[in-house]
Design a protein around this nucleic acid. Structure first.
Length: 117
DNA sequence: TAAGTGACGTCGA
DNA sequence: CTCGACGCCACTT
């Protein structure tokens, strides 16, 4: 059984990102881990850029492991991401976000039920 | 095939 | 805590 093909890495990444709750953030590296792609954080950024706008993926909730927005400060994309986060109640200072307050703590049960076994 | 690039991560100064 | 160097991976030149 289970002869069906497993989802593409990009589809897996999109799936994980779509699960990040409003008002919470998660790092590229951890998204990659949950997607079953350890060590491929850079693939996550690529997947977000490739995501069609129609799917309204919450890309702004993905930041780097240091709790900062990865775009260069003062650039249009940086400002857009910061505003999206603030609109959800996330406090952003100079591109920095307090992970101890806003990092998503994925529920194990939810994860198990959502992964493609 | 080698070298460059990037919405990353980790470690040490 | 901030920075730079280096490691990494998947492309692109």
């Amino acid at each position: 059984m289970q002869a069906s093909s497993k989802p593409s890495p990009m589809a897996q990444i999109w799936h994980i990102v779509s699960m990040i709750p409003q008002g919470k953030v998660y790092s590229y590296g951890k998204v990659a881990d949950l997607a079953g792609l350890p060590g491929r954080a850079r693939l996550v950024s690529k997947a977000l850029r490739a995501a069609p706008p129609e799917m309204a993926l919450p890309w702004h909730r993905v930041i780097n492991s240091q709790g900062k927005i990865s775009f260069a400060e003062h650039t249009p994309p940086f400002i857009e991401q910061m505003q999206c986060l603030r609109a959800e109640g996330v406090i952003v200072n100079r591109g920095r976000i307090k992970l101890s307050d806003y990092e998503w703590q994925p529920d194990i049960a939810t994860l198990v039920l959502s992964l493609p076994y």
